[in-house]
Deep mutational scan, measured.
Amino acid sequence: TETREFDNEEEARKEAERLRRKGQDVQIRKKGNRWELRRT
Rank of each mutant, 00 (worst) to 15 (best):
T1R: 10
T1N: 12
E2A: 12
E2L: 13
T3P: 11
R4F: 14
R4Q: 13
R4S: 08
F6A: 02
F6V: 02
D7A: 08
N8E: 05
N8D: 10
E9Q: 06
E9H: 07
E10V: 08
E10H: 10
E10S: 07
E10P: 05
E10R: 07
E11V: 04
E11G: 04
E11R: 03
E11H: 05
A12I: 02
A12T: 02
A12D: 00
R13H: 11
R13W: 11
R13N: 11
K14R: 12
K14I: 12
K14A: 14
K14W: 11
K14F: 10
E15Q: 05
E15W: 10
E17D: 11
E17N: 11
L19N: 01
L19E: 03
L19W: 09
R20V: 05
R20F: 05
R20W: 09
R20G: 04
R21Q: 10
R21D: 07
R21I: 07
K22G: 09
K22A: 13
K22M: 15
G23R: 02
G23V: 01
Q24K: 06
Q24E: 13
Q24F: 15
Q24V: 15
Q24P: 02
Q24W: 15
D25G: 07
V26S: 04
V26N: 02
V26K: 01
Q27N: 07
Q27S: 11
Q27G: 05
Q27W: 09
I28F: 03
I28T: 02
R29I: 15
R29W: 09
R29E: 09
R29K: 10
K30S: 04
K31N: 12
K31E: 06
K31P: 02
K31Q: 07
G32D: 06
G32S: 01
G32F: 01
N33K: 05
N33T: 05
N33R: 04
N33G: 08
N33M: 05
N33A: 05
R34E: 03
R34T: 05
R34M: 12
R34S: 07
R34I: 12
W35M: 01
W35A: 00
E36N: 00
E36W: 06
L37Q: 03
R38N: 09
R38K: 11
R38M: 14
R39P: 14
R39S: 15
T40N: 10
T40W: 10
